[in-house]
Design a protein around this nucleic acid. Sequence first.
DNA 1: AAGGTGACCGGCC
DNA 2: TGGCCGGCCACCT
Length: 108
Amino acid sequence: MENDNFFERVYTIARQIPFGRVTSYGAIAKALGTARSARMVGWAMNASHSLEDVPAHRVVNRKGLLTGKLHFDGTNLMQQLLESEGVEVVDNQILNFEKHFWEPEITQ
DNA sequence: AAGGTGACCGGCC
DNA sequence: TGGCCGGCCACCT
């Protein structure tokens, strides 16, 4: 369960997400150079549970839906965090997703 | 070693 | 955006 390079890379991107911003798994995958494996990003986030520096609550799917909310705490914690950052969330969906969307930088 | 899984994405209706 | 299907890649048992 040590940090693998692949996971660490995803975490690095997630940590780069600014306050009050959100991004999608696909965007992170693309930043990693593997846009096709957006699933892997979600998998990496799953392992991020052990970490604290990974704001997984800022990572949502392409539709702006808090799909991972169920994985967070089993509650609306994810939504609470986003709203706390100024992101409007209703029914597990981010309002003005495009406005809050932030594209991760390419980390080679 | 092989199969199953998954917090997805894109295309189509 | 909504729902369904196929593809994709790494991790787990």
